[in-house]
């Protein structure tokens, strides 16, 4: 039982929004949608979150994450997964955002002394890897002993927390709405993780409104968020 507690507690620590991840600066398209009034209430935020999870995360990030978790010690495979992640991210800010989150993740884990972080970071510095978030998270979390399920739970929870946090800071919803939406979305996350992930070569997403908004965000005058 103690092992189980240790493992659960480690997951709470590394999946917590208090863990420095840089996520606070990212809205993944939400800021642009709010600025254009395409999202302006709790319903809109929930739809946005579902679209991110079902239309993108489930079929791209998660697939790459799970396969990076399995290939944690195989640099060539990680390079391939990293490239697939890059090519599945059409909008520049979404693509660069995932790279930046991945690099920040490595910077933090180097300082925490996590095994494997320095080596992966070297491969980012020398241009072998872009360092996309799902790739480095999959590999490092595996190195730390997390299961593939745990890695998915942490990643999905982290995405929800940061998107809902962004919605609160953009003043579209309040804290209580955020928690109601988070509760509503829980079964959606569980369902996604229950189905086997697609092959990374078959990774696909369809969130056109979010991607277009993200492209418009590149030249928006007012930008509180990275993307």
């Amino acid at each position: 039982m103690t092992d189980r507690y240790l493992s659960d507690l480690a997951m709470l620590q590394h999946g917590d929004s208090a863990f420095p991840s840089g996520a606070v600066s990212f809205s993944w398209g939400l800021e642009a949608l709010v600025n254009r009034n395409s999202v302006n209430d709790a319903r809109g935020v929930e739809d946005f979150l579902r679209a991110q999870l079902e239309g993108r995360w489930a079929s791209i990030d998660r697939s790459i994450l799970v396969h990076a978790h399995a290939a944690w010690d195989n640099l060539n495979r990680l390079v391939t997964l990293d490239g697939l992640m890059d090519s599945q991210s059409l909008a520049t800010e979404l693509r660069m955002g995932s790279r930046r989150i991945g690099r920040a993740f490595l910077s933090v884990h180097i300082r925490l002394g996590t095994l494997g972080a320095a080596a992966l970071n070297e491969n980012v510095a020398n241009g072998m890897l872009y360092g996309h978030a799902p790739v480095v998270q999959g590999a490092i979390w595996r190195e730390m002993g997390f299961t593939a399920e745990q890695a998915q739970l942490m990643a999905a929870h982290g995405l929800c927390s940061s998107l809902l946090g962004a919605a609160v800071r953009l003043s579209v919803i309040g804290h209580f709405d955020a928690q109601v939406i988070r509760t509503e979305i829980t079964s959606c996350i569980a369902e996604i993780i229950t189905t086997p992930p697609c092959k990374p070569e078959e990774a696909h997403g369809f969130t056109p409104q979010i991607e277009i908004a993200s492209m418009l965000h590149e030249t928006d005058q007012s930008r509180l968020f990275v993307n």
Binding site: A18, P20, S21, G22, A23, V24, S25, F26, S27, R100, R103, A104, F105, S107, V108, R111, A166, R169, L170, R223, L224, F225, V226
Partner: peptide
């Protein structure tokens, strides 16, 4: 430049990871 996500104090205090990564770069 590092964007603050509407939280200037958060990115220098609670979660400085993007600033650390930028300085590392």
């Amino acid at each position: 430049a590092v964007e603050a996500g509407a939280c200037p104090h958060t990115i220098i205090r609670e979660d400085p990871s993007l600033n650390i990564a930028a300085a590392d770069t």
